[in-house]
Design a protein around this nucleic acid. Sequence first.
DNA 1: GTCTTTCCCGACCGAAATAGTCGGGAATAT
DNA 2: ATATTCCCGACTATTTCGGTCGGGAAAGAC
Lengths: 145, 145
Amino acid sequence: MTISRKAEYALRAVVILAAAAPDRPMQIHDLAESGKIPAKFLEQILLTLKRGGLLRSKRGVGGGYHLEKPARQITVGDIVALIDGGLCHLAAHGQDSGTAEFPGARGLRDSLTEIDELVNEKLASLTIEEILNRDEPDAMLAFGI
Amino acid sequence: MTISRKAEYALRAVVILAAAAPDRPMQIHDLAESGKIPAKFLEQILLTLKRGGLLRSKRGVGGGYHLEKPARQITVGDIVALIDGGLCHLAAHGQDSGTAEFPGARGLRDSLTEIDELVNEKLASLTIEEILNRDEPDAMLAFGI
DNA sequence: GTCTTTCCCGACCGAAATAGTCGGGAATAT
DNA sequence: ATATTCCCGACTATTTCGGTCGGGAAAGAC
């Protein structure tokens, strides 16, 4: 029913990276500290995000992670899909769930699917950039925009 | 991330009961068969729904379950809340999750909470009656309404 | 009464998912 | 060389999920 803790850690990490200087990579250690995320666990997560094409990494001294693409092109949906494997499903417990046929069965399936789609659309349209802008509503004003 | 199977069983059961004759109670056994739900598991579920005030039961010969109130006054949200204990939460992993403070933390929380609320509103406004009507879109026409 | 039907209800249980940890290896820079 | 940093598979502990089991208690039927 909930987004996994792992996915939430992933979101935190990406948000932090998006807020940081885009040229300087940030190390797992620092990221873990800022986000209060177990470092070794975060390692796994970042790797997944990297494999998913959201992050880029660099090894050795001065290495670390940074975003692969601009924050406006990364959505919460992307991240959750990578980490939790697929998006939210209220309906669809797969194979047999559709098998049961009783009066109202179709209506039930359809109704849940509809809500499903709503959530997934929302997650897919919510970008990291929006989240950041939301955090400091007057940030843009401060920059005279 | 998903609605639990238990909650889906509960939904099926209530939908079936709503579609059945409102005066004659229906037994666990029959309900289990119609909904393809493990009988003993269903027993647990129905009991919870009863304690939650959604169903009423009668023991002995000719006993069974029926709705406590009309289908239009029972929502999917009611059922999910009773069975899964609380509604959907994308955000809010409770105690410590709010503790982490980094740039974007608030925006992240707020964004997730907003989607949360959207889903919960949807679930809370979707009634069993609507589900049933949806199943047979022309049922009302058939009755000359 | 007593017998049958039906719900009531707590305890238990195996499998899977969750939430990590561990220990080393491979690049990269100094 | 050697320190730093990511890479990566294997392992583990805990919790949740999805049930099962076995008896008890009420309400009629006879």
